[in-house]
Design a protein around this nucleic acid. Structure first.
Lengths: 223, 223
DNA sequence: GCGAGCCTGTCAAAATTTTGTCAAAGTTTA
DNA sequence: TAAACTTTGACAAAATTTTGACAGGCTCGC
């Protein structure tokens, strides 16, 4: 599961990480409300763990914004201190789906997250766009002008990163790291994959979307 | 709210009563599983509080019977001891909607009950669909084009997760964790089970529903 | 403006990885 | 014990990734 942890207490965050990451969950962290909100709306998560007390924006406000303004339906689990029991009702009112009282067992957290995701997992449906090109992160389908494109895994990863950065040039190295992590290949394999992606995306269309910026990288944009 | 408390510990039951009854809730009590089950099916409640350890029938069994046999959809909140954390997963699997670890604050119990009822015992949707394929979570029967399919337990779990995510690609790892939890098998057993499920679902039909997304996972969808 | 040297595009064949298939051997359950 | 279920393993098929070789394009110093 992809989980966002919004928690300013480093110890708690680490505790959670130590327990959940070995189990194969992917975690992202935010130490304050603003960062948390930003991550929550720009990326896709299966669940969000939200501390009630945060620097910047407090948890309840964040949750409310998420639901009312950003229309993000990702399940939210709130962390509250024992003496904030009364705030919980507000939490539910703001759109939280569950909560946990500190101190809590990480195991319990995991169980609850599972339950949440199982129950409400429908949310998602994030789609990236650029011109008449779109890419659905859930179905992993890419379309151009409504027509399905046939992409292989590496092409999909390339497209994902490029679409998340349509506003700027993405360097070769960024692309390489996005695909291979730190184990970069020792030859210039990327060239071939860009070639393939370009074919898939632009071959049959007049307006080209994938542009090369010599010496800098690539950029995906209409016009 | 009308609430059924199934709890053999008299002290705990009294505690709950002392807190909730003055607030205007109507409580019924059962001190063992059989009585609890009987009350749960013969009367109407807004929520049921269920101890995991009960004389007669244990909580999980009771819950499962309630959902699978008696088709009662009333929200269930389970009470577990700290060291029964592992049972919780079973609890959710059996159809519980929430749980609380003993010792707990009665106030917290009330908050959770409120949340559960508000959510409307949403659990609802006990039948999952995709195209002309359907799977009933209560009876555990799967049908394609109205015809019963013969599935084994692992195939059912696969189908369940895939149907809960008809819109998106489900990774091999997600599927594996759904079936085996953290004790993943060290060989690629999943392959064989997917093969089996595919046979059961698609073999005799023209439109295939179970699709492989190479390098990413599987996806169940019509068309 | 000119060419050397680097960067990038092109493509097909080879190498590798992933997935499908199925029967037989083990294991659990009724 | 029999029946049902799960795991193992071996091979086939499909798809993807890498390799390598050559061509064209871009930049920069001269």
């Amino acid at each position: 599961m992809r989980i966002l942890i919004v928690e300013d207490n480093r110890d708690i965050a680490e505790n959670i990480a130590d327990f959940l990451e070995p189990k194969g969950h992917e975690l992202d962290f935010a130490a304050d409300g603003v960062t948390g909100l930003h991550l929550a709306v720009t990326r896709r998560f299966d669940a969000i763990v939200l501390d009630l007390n945060l620097p910047g924006i407090d948890g309840i406000t964040l949750c409310r914004k998420l639901r009312r303004e950003a229309h993000v339906a990702t399940p939210v689990l709130m962390l509250t201190a024992r003496d904030q029991l009364d705030d919980k009702l507000d939490g539910f009112e703001a759109g939280a789906d569950d909560y946990l009282v500190k101190p809590f067992s990480v195991k319990e957290l995991e169980v609850r997250l599972h339950a949440l995701v199982k129950r409400g997992g429908v949310a998602g449906n994030r789609v990236l766009h650029a011109g008449d090109l779109e890419y659905n992160l859930d179905t992993l389908q890419a379309k151009r002008a409504g027509k399905l494109l046939d992409l292989n895994p590496i092409q999909r990863k390339l497209l994902e990163l490029l679409l998340q950065n349509t506003h700027r040039v993405v360097s070769r190295e960024e692309l390489e790291r996005h695909i291979w992590g730190d184990a970069l290949p020792d030859r210039d394999v990327l060239r071939t994959h860009i070639y393939g992606l370009r074919h898939a995306i632009d071959r049959n269309y007049d307006t080209k979307l994938l542009h090369t910026v010599h010496g800098a990288g690539y950029r995906l944009h209409a016009a």
